[in-house]
Every structure is written in structure tokens, then in C-alpha cells.
Design a protein around this nucleic acid. Structure first.
Lengths: 185, 185
DNA sequence: TCGATTTCGCTACTAGAAGTATCGATACCT
DNA sequence: AGGTATCGATACTTCTAGTAGCGAAATCGA
């Protein structure tokens, strides 16, 4: 019988600290900002040793991506038609990016990735691709068009956050939804 | 007679190295990436001492912003009507961000600014505001709408650059122009 | 209970980069 | 020539990512 974990390996089992570390990461980023959210500080906030973090995630960037993956979770692609699906997806992303720490962490790792091909690879394949594929399926749109939508929506939201320090207000999110929907029609 | 420089102060005058430093900054960012474009390296590429850079710009972020200000220059807001003005402005920004080093430098300083209020202030007032005001004037649109346009255009272009490592291709820039123009109409 | 195995916490360490301090040398004006 | 301010060079402090090593703790099997 090949179970998910066929036979637990010998030795001390890993402590289930992922959830605690993710929470500590987001709250630390929210409190002191991405630049000052050092791994030392995150470990202290989580109540574990820094070395334990590096045993699980190979770099700070990978930790942030894992944290974002956990925070975003699967995309809720619901709606009666394509327009409703896309509109609800945009509002969902906007709300997530507005949550404490998430937008700042996203912008931070995104910036780190600009000149770090390895991190860019992680970000693209682990974070973006699942949503891209789900959207291609749900909207019946080709890859390049879905990528364009993602660039517009996420880029706009992050630019607003980066320039003002505050998430985009609802009225502007409405305008963003309307603008993208007009392209979809 | 109050001239621009009424009387030159005594002592050794500053060497005119700004242009050399800006060129060295962009080429260094283009060669080794924003993260590895250290002030030491930029100074070496410019053939001057690192201390001289810090005598002129208070921080690396300020240096990058000054470099971008120099690289972008005044916005060429030309066109027979509002649509032509906006379309040409978008294509101009897209071309600039695609130039070697400029996009990467922009993305880098932008990311640094997310959690650095002082740098965000510099970026917002020195780099964004002049273009925003010129666009408000040229398009006859209110501030919040012009800010929305800027978020969409710059955010989209930077997100594409950050995710793929390459500037946006012409076909997608065309789509971006068309999408924004539909909002303007 | 004992041993094997693996993870954990802790301390110390290296490497790299931002930014500062100091000082002799240099360029310009009067 | 003298006064003044900048330049180049070196050294330094501080902070952070990431690594190394070691004793302690947890779990399983015998």
C-alpha cells in the first residue's frame, strides 16, 4: 500500500511550524516593512531558530513565495459567465493585496526577482502559473491574453501600493474591473 | 543683479561628473542587475571615488532616482488630440522602460520605495508629479484619473519586465494603448 | 530501557554592501 | 602665494543573508 507517506522516516519528526512562520512573516513585514523584515526578526517572531527556517526554505525569497502561496491559496473562479469570473478574480486579488503584509511582501519579492532569474523562475512557475492556467481554462482565452490581464491587474495594484503606501481604494478597483472587462468583451 | 549663480563660491569647483555617473549607473545595472549594482561598482565604472558619489546624492536610491530623472527627461506630450497625446505618451514610456538598464533601475528603486517612505516621497514628487501635472493639463483630466492611468501603464510594463525579464513586446504595448484609450473616450 | 536517526536551538562565523570618517592632494579664485 | 572647497584613497562601522558545528531533544524499533 503506497500511502502518501508510505513509512515515516526514522529520527525526530519535523515540528509543524509552517503556519506559525507564515504568520510571523506577514506580521513582521507589515510591522517593519519588507526591507527590515530580516530572517532573524521573522524567526524571533515565530519563536524558532533562524537555522530552522533555512533548513526548510533555501532563501528568504523562497520563504516569501511559500508564504504568499499559502496566503493566496487556490483562486476562487466563480461566476455565471466569463465576465463574472474575471471580475470576481480581480476583486479577490485586490482584496488579498490589501491585506496586512501581503501586498508589501508581494512587492518586495517581486522586486527582488527582477534581477534574480532563479527567484523569478520560482515566482513565475509556483505562484503565477497555477492562476494563469486556471484562468485560461475558465475564460477560454489564450496564454498571451491571460498573461496580459495578469500584468495589468497585478501591476496596477502593486504600482499603486508602491507609490502611495496604501492599497487601491474600491472606486479605483471598480474602474480597473471595468477597464479589463471591456478588453474581454 | 541676482544671477542664477550670483557669485561662485570659493574653493575647488565640483567636477562635472553627473553625466558620467548616470551613464555608469545604467550600464552597471544593465550588466550585473540592480541587486549587484553596488555603489562601489558604479563608482569604479564611472572612474571616480565612491565618496564623491555620496557627496552628491545622499543614498543609492536618490542616485537612481536622479539617474532616472535624467534618463526620462521631459515628457513629449504631442498629438493632434487627447487620444494621440495619451497614446504617444504610453509608447514613449514603454520604449524608455525597454532601454538597457532603465527598466531594471526603475523596478529596483520602485521596490525599494515600497517600504521606504522617504524614498517613496522622492519618487512620487520628483519623478511622477511632473508627468502627472503635465498630463492633467494636456488631457484635461482630474488628478485621480491621471494617477489611475499612470498606475495602469507603468505598473503593467514593470510587472511584465519583472516576471519575464524582458520588456513588453510591441503587440502587447498596442493592446495596452488601446485598452487605456477606451477608458479615456 | 537503549540505541539509531533525524531535527532543533544556539552560538559563532563568513561575505557582501550601505554609508561614514579622515586626511593628504588638487584645483580654482583673489 | 594663500584661502577654500572638492577629490581620491583607505579604513572603518553596521547590518544582513547564508553557513558551520555541536549538544540537546524527539521518535522509532529492538
Amino acid at each position: 500500500m503506497a500511502r502518501a507517506t508510505p513509512t515515516r522516516p526514522p529520527g525526530r519528526p519535523r515540528a509543524g511550524v509552517d503556519a506559525v512562520v507564515f504568520a510571523a512573516t506577514l506580521s513582521t513585514v507589515d510591522e517593519v516593512g519588507y526591507a527590515h523584515a530580516t530572517v532573524d526578526r521573522i524567526a524571533a517572531a515565530a519563536g524558532i531558530a533562524k537555522t530552522t527556517i533555512y533548513r526548510r526554505w533555501p532563501s528568504k525569497g523562497a520563504l516569501i513565495v511559500a508564504c504568499l502561496l499559502d496566503a493566496f491559496g487556490p483562486a476562487p473562479l466563480k461566476g455565471a459567465d466569463r465576465e463574472e469570473v474575471l471580475a470576481s478574480a480581480i476583486r479577490w486579488v485586490a482584496a488579498k493585496i490589501g491585506e496586512p503584509g501581503i501586498g508589501a511582501a508581494f512587492a518586495g519579492v517581486f522586486t527582488d526577482a527582477v534581477n534574480d532569474p532563479a527567484l523569478r523562475q520560482i515566482l513565475s512557475t509556483q505562484l503565477q502559473d497555477p492562476y494563469r492556467l486556471a484562468l485560461e481554462e475558465a475564460l477560454g482565452e489564450p496564454e498571451n491574453r491571460v498573461l496580459f490581464f495578469i500584468d495589468v491587474v497585478v501591476g496596477t495594484l502593486l504600482h499603486r501600493l508602491g507609490m502611495t503606501g496604501e492599497p487601491m481604494v474600491d472606486a479605483d478597483v471598480d474602474a480597473l474591473v471595468e477597464m479589463v472587462l471591456r478588453v474581454l468583451r
